[in-house]
Structures are given as structure tokens and as C-alpha cells.
């Protein structure tokens, strides 16, 4: 599960990266739209059955520490997380807004694509200012199933050293 934080040259040609980028962007757009609509129960639909999902700090990633704020092995755990957030957890109402940078295509191997995309996650609490809640990079492995991409592995690596209070929704 080692995360590559240092710069490495992509293993995919610039021309091929340009072809794949819109496909990844289409994926991100819908993924973020679901989360920004607080429609958390649709969130697991973006993952393959054996997908892993983890949110961790850059500090942990650079020390090769395995812990996650959210740590899911398999879509079943991802579904459990979605249900718990939707139906069992108490937190103040809020709106989240994901603002993504340009996806960087690193590698293509058959139906598998490895990419990185920077994000800023804004949070707006009721009666609160809009704040930058997290910023970081998605380290993704996508797998193409039929005509769509699914996440096989997403590592959300955030730079934010001190998180404000809590992270209620997935990123």
C-alpha cells in the first residue's frame, strides 16, 4: 500500500494521457457531485467489489504508516460507512464542496489506470464561514468495467496538519 509521494515520470505517453484524462474527469465530476449533494448512500457505487479506500495524512503516508481516518477494505465496508453516516451518526448539518485540479495520468495497464488528482475540500457549516477543510491529492487506481471506470483503490492523502473538529463525510 506504499504511496508514491515523490515526483516520478509518468509511464504513459502524453498523447495517451490526454485521451484518458477526460474519462477520469467524468468519473470525478459525478463522484464529487454525489458527495456535494450529501447523497452519501450512492457513494459506494463508484467502487469495485474489492476496492480499498483510505483517508490519511501526508505525514502518515511519508512515514509509511497504514492508519486511516477512514479505512475500508472492500465495498461492503464502504457501504457500512455510508449507512452509518446516513443513519447512525450525529453531527452538525453542513455542505461540502470538492474542487478538483487536473488529473495526472501515471500508468495504464490493461483495464487498470493509475492517476493522481489534487483536491480542495471546502466545508460550510450552518451559520459558519466557508473554510478549507482539507486539501490534498487523490492517489487512485481505476479499473474499467464495461464502459465505466470504478475505483479499485483510492488513497486520499491530505496535507492539512490539524483538522478542524471532525471529518463527517468521505472525500
Amino acid at each position: 500500500m506504499r504511496i508514491q509521494l515523490a515526483y516520478t515520470t509518468p509511464a504513459v505517453s502524453p498523447a495517451r494521457a490526454t485521451q484518458l484524462r477526460p474519462e477520469i474527469e467524468s468519473f470525478h465530476v459525478e463522484y464529487c457531485a454525489v458527495l456535494d449533494a450529501n447523497d452519501i448512500e450512492r457513494w459506494p457505487d463508484f467502487f469495485s467489489a474489492d476496492a480499498t479506500y483510505r483517508i490519511t495524512s501526508r505525514e502518515n503516508a511519508s512515514l509509511d504508516m497504514p492508519v486511516g481516518l477512514v479505512y475500508c477494505e472492500g465495498r461492503d465496508m464502504i457501504v457500512d460507512r455510508a449507512l452509518a453516516v446516513a443513519h447512525s451518526q450525529m453531527f452538525a448539518p453542513r455542505h461540502m464542496l470538492h474542487v478538483l485540479g487536473i488529473p495526472r495520468v501515471l500508468e495504464e495497464d490493461g483495464a487498470t489506470i493509475r492517476a493522481q488528482t489534487p483536491f480542495i475540500l471546502m466545508q460550510t457549516l450552518i451559520e459558519g464561514p466557508s473554510t478549507i477543510h482539507l486539501c490534498g491529492v487523490y492517489h487512485d487506481v481505476f479499473v474499467r468495467q464495461e464502459d465505466r471506470l470504478l475505483i479499485a483503490r483510492r488513497e486520499v492523502v491530505y496535507d492539512t496538519q490539524i483538522l478542524d473538529t471532525a471529518l463527517a463525510y468521505p472525500v
Binding site: S57, V67, L163
Partner: peptide, 9 residues
């Protein structure tokens, strides 16, 4: 050690 996190309350 498995890792860290930090938050302000």
C-alpha cells in the same frame, strides 16, 4: 506505531 492524526476541538 500505526500512525497519527491531529484535530482541533
Amino acid at each position: 506505531i500505526l500512525g497519527y492524526c491531529r484535530n482541533e476541538l
